[in-house]
Nucleic acid binder design. Structure first.
Lengths: 199, 199
DNA sequence: CCATTAAAATAGCGATCCCTATTAAAATGT
DNA sequence: ACATTTTAATAGGGATCGCTATTTTAATGG
């Protein structure tokens, strides 16, 4: 029998690269080096395995990223580092491009609607985490009282999703970070350096 | 035999909703009311049909959107209307959510790599169209000479992709437009109204 | 050492995938 | 009206889908 965490790591990587519908149970068992019955006795079903692989991967990333976001840094600095960290995650060498969650299962066959709801809920949770940090910034006087933190969180959520999409299409680390730098000029009260070429 | 354009319209809608991998040829023939051999004699293959359905749909949208973008309006106004039009397209009633191209085939099985390259090329073309408009704005003195128009185009491209993703997750028209309004405050030289709630 | 439990591998279920050879129906020409 | 061409429908091929019953192998207990 295989180690459960190793299996989840292998599954996560396959789902990450090929998506839920693009990954077959044959792909999964082959990559894990197990037989089909082992997959089903260990993880329940393909959908359950996907859920567990997502949880497993998110748990790993979240410790570092929530540390950045919930640190005592000024909210603007924390957001910057958070976005840079995501850009790095989208473009790791020897890893699939983009984010495993941000752009997963957006289109899908009817039979996979519950899987799509799952990833959508994860994306919403990620936006709510951003919003909560922004709300704290308002309380701390770092942002104007009447700031629309919900829209602000959805704006940076859109940036995160856009970065994932562009990373899937081949965009490199540096290109994503240039994009982040523009997104950060939309921060409330920030003065804009007029977006010029450096070369 | 069915009318070719009607067939493409039906196919486009199915692919739009379910994605390439989530749409089967049985779905397509059933929705068009034809038999499998007719599909293959008319459109060649599933992949060819997808390509033709994309071209067909893009041709329809592009006339209006490139009119907006290439009009004599100031570039900032043109961009605003362009983005609003996309937000509307992402949230049409009785149509699938999101954009048929912006977030299509980001993850995929190996066997569908050529389909993914196709949609990636369409996204890149869309970004280059934006960049070309921004370059013209630089020539016309609407933007500083040293503006990094490439990054600026990729930034608004990311917004477009993020909007599509959030529309797939259920975001409404108004929510997307609030998001656009923030994105527009990142426009070079724009003064930022500090992003407050209107209610 | 044998009986019993637990683990792994094989084999294959019914359904569906994309696509096509073959048959049936309809349209056309003289 | 009949032969010919064109179009549509059926049937199904070979492969794969997610998943499981069954068999084989291995580990454990007395």
């Amino acid at each position: 029998m295989l180690d459960r965490d190793i299996g989840l790591d292998i599954a996560a990587r396959l789902f990450w690269e090929r998506g839920y519908e693009g990954t077959s149970t044959a792909d999964l068992t082959k990559a894990m080096g197990i037989n089909p019955p082992t997959l089903y006795s260990t993880f329940g079903s393909k959908e359950e395995l996907y859920r567990q692989a997502l949880d497993f991967s998110i748990a790993r990333e979240n410790s570092r990223r929530s540390e950045i976001l919930q640190s005592n840094l000024p909210v603007y600095e924390a957001l910057s580092l958070y976005l840079y960290d995501i850009a790095d995650g989208d473009t790791q060498p020897d890893k699939p491009r983009g984010c495993m969650v941000s752009t997963a299962v957006l289109q899908h066959a009817e039979e996979n609607a519950s899987v799509a709801r799952m990833t959508a809920a994860l994306r919403e949770a990620s936006i709510q985490t951003l919003k909560a940090r922004f709300d704290r910034a308002v309380e701390d006087g770092e942002l104007p009282t009447a700031t629309d933190t919900d829209t602000l969180a959805r704006f940076y959520g859109a940036i995160i999703q856009g970065m994932s999409a562009q990373a899937c299409d081949g965009a490199c680390n540096v290109r994503l970070k240039r994009l982040i730098d523009i997104a950060l000029t939309a921060w409330p009260g920030k003065r804009r350096p007029s977006t010029e070429n450096s070369d």
